[in-house]
Design a binder for these strands. Structure first.
Length: 877
RNA sequence: GCCCCGGUGGUGGAAUUGGUAGACGCGCCGGAUUCAAAAUCCGGUUCCUUCGGGAGUGUCGGUUCGAGUCCGACCCGGGGCACCA
């Protein structure tokens, strides 16, 4: 093959990227005459280099975007940077630079990389969340939420590293010690900002049912996270009176919080419990409180073993083996409470390690016959096990529903009826009421960090009043003259930044030095894309009304709960503040699988990069030195295990099209994808082959404007059927995210085309038709190659502006169909007949086959089942 | 422990949802081309076989004319949640 006909991937890809850019092919505006389609890929964190997960994500969104564009939609496919966050601060500390410059350098590098992928992105809408023009609007939203009562301040406990002078996330606390300093973590109370997502708990839960184009997995995870339960909350009265003990602690303890249970002298002592099974109240045999329940210490008095018990409860949290079996541990306080329904019945009160203070009321009643944990506990401590639900053959504990027994006025009712009846009775007695509880907590957004969106409030020094920063003073910008020499939050110790005046009185005031959780930025970035240059508001109502909701959102499943739930809350909160937004931000959601790769390690167990090893005589060795290498498990690519491939190397070597094609064709997008060098080479070969094939056959194709012939040869007709069936199938597979199947269908078609030898004008016409269809079909996957081939086919209009081919209905059906003939369920022959053949014809043809006759043997035919177009099954004797 | 998802050739995966299991690709084998190699092209490739056939979709059982697909029990792998009352 001569040099000038060889497909030059590098030049060709650069050429078409330039054409798209110059023609602004993917820039869009609101166009009421066209139906919109909003494709959204989860925005990347600018870590510096793109990884294969990005390539997979944006290839998928690109296929959808290009496919929908070809179908005539006005497609919005934007991109931006989730640019605030802790890694920038860590990098700044390590490299003695500033988070801002580190971040913007990374953005520039990653953008340059993404541009080589040839994505159909409207770059004019690019957004970086660390830009004050971006966070200005969310500061305004924050204040609007505050005014609506959706944002509030409250004292709450944080993990405090006393050496670094900083707050730690739960993940940064290892064995009770700070991950960096190793210092024991203190629990400190700080004033923190919260968003009232709990106001929307019910609505967010109910609306999950309507998210039909979301994966079931994600919907289930969100339901569980919200964790709605209905039950009864009621009070037990103590029949014993614990002596009021002075605090025995070392004095550093915080005063105890107010609680439902009041330790005051004159009122009788009570404890409030929560249950989802008030129907089983007659089966109650104990009451249990969390070890850190406000009443615990008072109830324990100076009984022996209390300190021991508390210590054990705390240690179960960390010792690994104990968690496995997690023995039920109890501490008998010796005190008793009265059963609310049974005169004279007393229940012992325990402290127990399986009761959590932060769920429900931190106290329960135990019904061992109908609860697993209560059963284990009662067995261990020799408490009564009283069945109150008919359980037939089932062994105790029986947790299912049934008819009530041994339960006085509840006897004979179903569990459901009994729950209602028990709640009614509790209400009559004034002991409690039916309540609904959620696991979901309000969203704490305060972070004691520098590289985040400043929370736009000041506190007046004279009286501590919390005052929102007036709109005309927004944004509250991050100072750039910061230092990382001392531990802690640079904003807090900045010499001037936080000192300001009260906008109302002009008195001295202190700025809030906390910044927002970075989930704040990602909760509305899809709205900013709609109107990225709006300086008055984050986005206009008009833009939102035209583009929202997102038609197809694509990203990793790791955001199944937090990001996706916060965004759903955010649209509702914005709506409450007068913005025009849909309730639900994302109509369709697709979660892609992980990209995995083999791990390699040297003799000492150190991880090795795949680029540093090679295979020699069937064994893996290091390239540098040839030392033996062991091949380990295939796991998600991660820097720590070094099993990463730099996609840029792949793109530089094989081109973006090959990388895209391999990623799409090897595995279904929702499953994990195992990266392999061999796979990428296969994709690369196919790209070259398509180009070569067209170059070879080009002169034999009919002219671009040749009239349709009046008739086609048998081969020509067959090819045309395949073409139209493929057009039909590929569209459906793309819509279902079966990109691997779409690619397979295209390859089948191209195999047929390559072996098709045009003999006359009608064949030449059919083959041109086939090539034109093939190129359009493959465009979403390998757009550079497709543009090149399209131009080779003689078109002036670029492919990015070309519509998806129409299918000819009459060609979707074949004129003959080959079906199997079974004898007693085993295939013995195949027959070919018209798809409209009658059952009788099919039966006749099947029985005429010698192989079928042979299989039937002497027993004769008992019955023949004919499923037209599918199968014939002969039942022989 | 509970809740999902998955298990099909050497390998990634197809199978019109109960109707010819293994599409398409990777790898491998054989051949052509080449001084040679690369690239490319052609053919083969589930396993066993006495070449007639037989077996086969994690295991065992069931329903059906017919099961990868439906039902029951179990085994293995991955993910999520977790003393949630």
């Amino acid at each position: 093959m001569s040099e000038n006909t060889r497909y030059n991937i590098k030049d060709t890809e650069a050429k078409w990227q330039k054409v798209w850019d110059e023609r602004k092919s993917f820039e869009v505006t609101e166009d009421p005459s066209k139906e919109k389609y909003y494709v959204l890929a989860m925005l990347p964190y600018p870590s510096g280099r793109i990884h294969v997960g990005h390539v997979r994500n944006y290839t998928l969104s690109d296929v959808v975007a290009r496919y929908r564009k070809a179908q005539g939609y006005n497609v919005l496919n934007p991109m931006g940077w989730d640019a605030l966050g802790l890694p920038a601060e860590n990098a700044a500390m390590e490299r003695n630079t500033l988070p801002k410059s580190w971040t913007y350098e990374n953005i520039a590098q990653m953008k340059a990389q993404l541009l080589t992928m040839g994505l159909a992105i409207d770059w004019s809408r690019e957004v970086a969340t660390c830009d004050p023009d971006y966070y200005k609007h969310e500061q305004k939203m924050f204040i609007e939420f505050y005014k609506k009562g959706l944002a509030y301040r409250k004292e709450s406990v944080v993990n405090w590293d006393p050496v670094d002078n900083t707050v730690l996330a739960n993940e940064q606390v290892v064995d009770g010690k700070g991950w960096r300093t190793g210092a024991p973590v203190e629990r400190r109370k700080l004033n923190q900002w919260f968003f009232k997502i709990t106001d929307y708990a019910d609505e967010l839960l109910e609306a999950i049912d309507g998210l039909e184009r979301w994966p079931d997995k994600v919907r289930t995870m969100q339901r569980n996270w919200i964790g709605k339960s209905q039950g009864a909350q009621f009070t037990f009265n103590f029949t014993t009176s614990p002596s009021c003990h002075p605090e025995r602690s070392e004095g550093s303890q915080k005063p105890q919080e107010d609680s439902s249970a009041s330790p005051q002298n004159d009122k009788p002592l009570t404890v409030e419990v929560y249950t989802t099974r008030p129907d089983t109240l007659f089966g109650a045999s104990f009451v249990a409180l969390a070890a850190d329940h406000p009443l615990a210490k008072q109830l324990a008095g100076d009984k022996d073993g209390f300190d021991d018990f508390i210590q054990k409860c705390q240690s179960t949290g960390t010792s690994e083996e104990a968690i496995e079996k997690a023995d039920k541990l109890g501490f008998d306080t010796g005190h008793k409470v009265a059963h609310p329904f049974i005169e004279g019945r007393e229940l012992p009160v325990y402290l127990a390690n399986f009761i959590l203070m932060d769920y429900g009321t931190g106290a329960i009643f135990g019904c061992p016959a109908h609860d697993e944990r209560d059963f284990a506990f009662a067995t261990k401590y020799g408490l009564d096990i009283l069945p109150v639900v008919e359980h037939g053959e089932e062994e105790l504990p029986y947790v299912g529903p049934g008819k009530m027994i041994n339960s006085d006025f509840l006897d004979g009712l179903t569990s459901e009826e009994a729950i209602a009846a028990a709640i009614k009775k509790l209400e009559e007695l004034g002991a409690g009421q039916g309540v609904t509880k959620f696991r979901l907590r309000d969203w704490g957004v305060s972070r004691q960090r520098y590289w985040g969106c400043p929370i736009p409030f000041v506190y007046r020094e004279s009286d501590g009043a919390c005052i929102p920063v007036p709109e005309d003073q927004l944004p509250v910008e991050l100072p750039e003259d910061i230092d990382y020499d001392a531990p802690g939050n640079p904003l807090d110790r900045h010499p001037t930044w936080k000192y300001t005046t009260c906008p109302e009185t002009g008195e001295p005031a202190i700025r809030e030095t906390d910044t927002c959780d970075t989930f704040f930025e990602s909760s509305w970035y899809f709205l900013r894309y709609l109107d990225p240059n709006n300086t008055e508001r984050g986005f206009s109502d008009e833009a939102s009304k035209y583009w929202m909701a997102v038609d197809q959102y694509i990203g990793g499943v790791e955001h199944a709960v937090l990001h996706l739930l916060y965004s759903r809350f955010f649209t509702r909160a914005l709506k409450a503040c007068g913005y025009a937004v849909t309730d639900e931000p994302f109509d369709g959601l697709f979660t892609q699988g992980m990209v995995t790769h083999t791990t390699f390690a040297d003799e000492d167990g150190n991880w090795l990069f795949p680029v540093d090893v090679e295979q020699k005589d069937g064994n893996w060795v290091t390239i540098d030195g040839g030392k033996p290498v062991t091949q380990g498990a295939v796991v998600k690519m991660s820097k720590s295990k070094k099993n990463v491939i730099d996609p840029q190397d792949i793109i530089d070597t094989y081109g973006a099209d090959a990388a895209r094609l391999f990623i799409l064709s090897d595995s279904p997008p929702d499953r994990d994808l195992e990266w392999s060098e061999a796979g990428i080479e296969g994709a690369w070969k196919y790209i070259n082959k398509l180009h070569r094939s067209l170059m070879e056959i080009k002169d034999k194709l009919a002219a671009k404007d040749a009239p349709a012939p009046s008739a086609f040869s048998d081969e020509g007709s067959k090819l045309r059927r395949t073409v139209h069936q493929t057009i039909d199938a590929v569209g459906r597979e793309i819509e279902d995210f079966h990109m691997n199947k779409a690619v397979a269908k295209i390859r089948e078609l191209s195999n047929d085309m390559v072996s098709f030898d045009p003999k006359d004008d009608s064949d030449a016409y059919a083959l041109r038709e086939a090539w034109e269809a093939l190129v359009v079909l493959i465009n979403p996957m390998v757009p550079h190659l497709a543009e090149e081939l399209w131009a080779e086919l003689g078109h002036d209009q670029i492919l990015a502006d070309t519509n998806w081919p129409e299918t000819d209905e009459s060609l979707l059906e074949n004129d003959t169909v080959t079906i199997g003939v079974q004898v007693n369920g085993k295939v013995r022959a195949t027959i070919t007949l018209s798809p409209n053949a009658s059952k009788e014809e099919a039966e006749e043809l099947a029985l005429a086959d010698p192989n079928v006759q042979k299989a039937i043997g002497g027993g004769g035919v008992k019955k023949v089942i004919v499923v037209p177009g599918r199968i014939v099954n002969v039942v022989a004797g």
